[in-house]
Design a protein around this nucleic acid. Sequence first.
DNA 1: CAGATGCATTGATGTAGGATAAGAAATGAA
DNA 2: TTCATTTCTTATCCTACATCAATGCATCTG
Lengths: 197, 197
Amino acid sequence: MLDSFKTYFQSKTNLTDEQFHSISANLQFKKVEKGSILLHQGDVCHHSFFVSKGLLRSYTIDENGKEHIIQFAPENWIISDRSSSYFNEPSELFIDAIEETEIVFIDKNFINAVAEISISFREQDNTALHNHIRQLQKRVNLLLGATAEQRYLDFITIYPSLTLRIPQWMIASYLGITPETLSRVRKELAKRNFKPY
Amino acid sequence: MLDSFKTYFQSKTNLTDEQFHSISANLQFKKVEKGSILLHQGDVCHHSFFVSKGLLRSYTIDENGKEHIIQFAPENWIISDRSSSYFNEPSELFIDAIEETEIVFIDKNFINAVAEISISFREQDNTALHNHIRQLQKRVNLLLGATAEQRYLDFITIYPSLTLRIPQWMIASYLGITPETLSRVRKELAKRNFKPY
DNA sequence: CAGATGCATTGATGTAGGATAAGAAATGAA
DNA sequence: TTCATTTCTTATCCTACATCAATGCATCTG
């Protein structure tokens, strides 16, 4: 469980094995079952979650009780509510497990400790923030203009592996359409003999 | 022109007047007329634009020739394509002037020089990134679920002053609806005796 | 001043996608 | 295996919003 995290992490920093081991000494791990909720809307987010195996998602629930999926996090991804943890404010988001998943809990102490000793970590973190912005901006752009079909096509080209793992109703929720509409879009694509793989 | 920038800037850093003056020595200023384009889609973004007077906007143009407005920047705002300038990639965005506006051109040399000498600047920049993410995430959420009316109401509560300055068709473009629909939404609100101010 | 030009409104009509309901298929538990 | 639950599909109807087109106003401009 720690292994994949270590690999991931060392690729982003220039820490020696010794440094890594001393810092990671009090990291927490957990295997959670499908459906477990890791962050509740309204709570302040105190951790980032590194997925070493499995699949997490973040989502909101609006006034009408509808879910809107913000992000998926499969293996080797980190998911969190950066706004909440950075500003110490209650989160808008839920984070839960779509599959049984193995998680490394990364808290601020860990982050600060690493930032302290590794310049390249700080740079990587900055890069990650910029990537996040880029990805969100692209999504805003899609939501402003694209049809259901265009959004779905975009999704399966960006996340081909996820397309098979995630239930369709969740993909629909991510795209901002109903499961029924997604089903129709897929049918239409099949009719036009579209081959995703 | 430099004054408002200096005020803005010193509020975010702890630079002395001397430091500021030496660093800002080769900053560029420009007054541009309404409609001037500061960044073209496809070009790499080399500056951030500080608005000391007037109003800028960033937007994309999709395959069908439709504009989608990403952001507005009135007085004392900075606008830019951070992704493009950070990753040195061609920008998706146009940036142009909605009104005649006075701009301070902030280039990387300036940023680097300040980051070099001011910790609080680096912190502020990091905070700005997090704010940007928060704002984008909120917008994604609105676009995923809210009706035209809800989006408009959200807009006028967040940007009451802009509501009066920006032509309605631009607000519509920001909200992802047509000008006609916005006009009907406004009519409907008026009928229900809604008072924005 | 007359005629452009740009923006907002209004009306008529079209359509993508939502709501609802029901059945089929897949998954999973006993 | 069987029964139950969840997911996916299909069909019908409906609504929010788009599209198209006409008109009304301001503001420019020669």
